[in-house]
């Protein structure tokens, strides 16, 4: 069974590569090198700050856009083009298909992020001429960004399993924005009363919480990230992604492929 998941995942990865998804790396490289050169000429003190802020923000946004745009098509496109028929008439369980797709997309993003990370550290080296110890926190920030991608991939798959790509994209983007303000959402919820408070709190806990996974600015200020936060964030992101995947499996498992 694990074999089939691996095959589906690697085919998903191959599809992304052949669809020229990794071309975004060129845009990223241009953006980053341009910024590094410009910043180096303009300001002395904050050049590192700008490179880290800009670099990590770009890594995050590029990845989110890729995750959403590929994620939403993963299932619905296969249904629409009927490529799924010849897959599911083989000894492939539906849940294996979903899980395989997830790992394929996640793998694509990890590879993409890996190349981007090399770019960020390259730019850092260019402006600072050497690495300092606090630069290791940039790695943690990148790790958190990947955790975010996992959650978004799973959510994209979830929407893709029952909705059209356009609607899925709207849902996923909306959740991404809401998720970035999730802590404030919980703040709002705490100010409500009675039933609405319960509902709002429930909703606030159910939407993806990205705020804790965004440590870009604190890392840019060379602040440490606590080990506890790393553990909790890892656990949270993995459980959340698994939850969304289970939802996708449940929906897909009962769906008629008309």
């Amino acid at each position: 069974m694990s074999g089939r998941i691996v095959h589906i995942a690697s085919n998903t990865f191959r599809e992304a590569v052949r669809d020229r998804v990794l071309y975004n790396l060129i845009a990223f490289a241009l953006l980053l090198s341009g910024a590094a050169i410009l910043v180096g000429q303009i300001s002395i003190d904050i050049e590192k700050l700008v490179v880290i802020n800009l670099g990590l923000t770009a890594v995050s946004l590029f990845g989110v856009v890729i995750a959403i745009f590929i994620g939403i098509g993963l299932v619905s496109k296969e249904i629409e083009k009927r490529t799924l028929y010849t897959v599911l008439s083989r000894p492939v369980r539906r849940w294996e298909f979903i899980v395989g797709k997830f790992f394929g997309l996640a793998g694509t993003l990890v590879v993409n992020t890996f190349f981007m990370a090399i770019g960020v550290f390259g730019a850092l080296l260019y402006v600072a001429h050497r690495f300092n110890k606090p630069d290791a926190w940039v790695l943690v920030a990148l790790y958190f960004i990947i955790l975010q991608f996992l959650m978004i991939c799973a959510l994209g798959l979830l929407f893709s399993s029952f909705s059209s790509p356009l609607l899925s994209a709207v849902f996923a983007f909306a959740l991404f924005v809401i998720g970035s303000f999730a802590e404030d959402l919980r703040g709002f919820a705490a100010m409500a009363h009675g039933v609405s408070r319960w509902l709002a709190t429930g909703a606030a806990y159910l939407v993806p919480n990205f705020s804790a996974l965004n440590v870009i600015s604190s890392v840019a200020h060379e602040q440490a990230v606590s080990g506890q936060l790393i553990w909790y964030n890892t656990g949270y992101a993995l459980l959340y992604a698994a939850m969304a995947l289970c939802g996708a499996v449940l929906i897909f498992e009962h769906r008629d492929l008309k």
Binding site: N11, E15, K81, R82, T83, Y85, T86, S89, R90, P91
Partner: peptide, 15 residues
């Protein structure tokens, strides 16, 4: 069952 059967859908389309 699935290992023992082959299926050609109508107007097939592939990756």
């Amino acid at each position: 069952v699935k290992a023992q059967i082959g299926f050609l859908p109508e107007q097939p389309y592939f990756y």
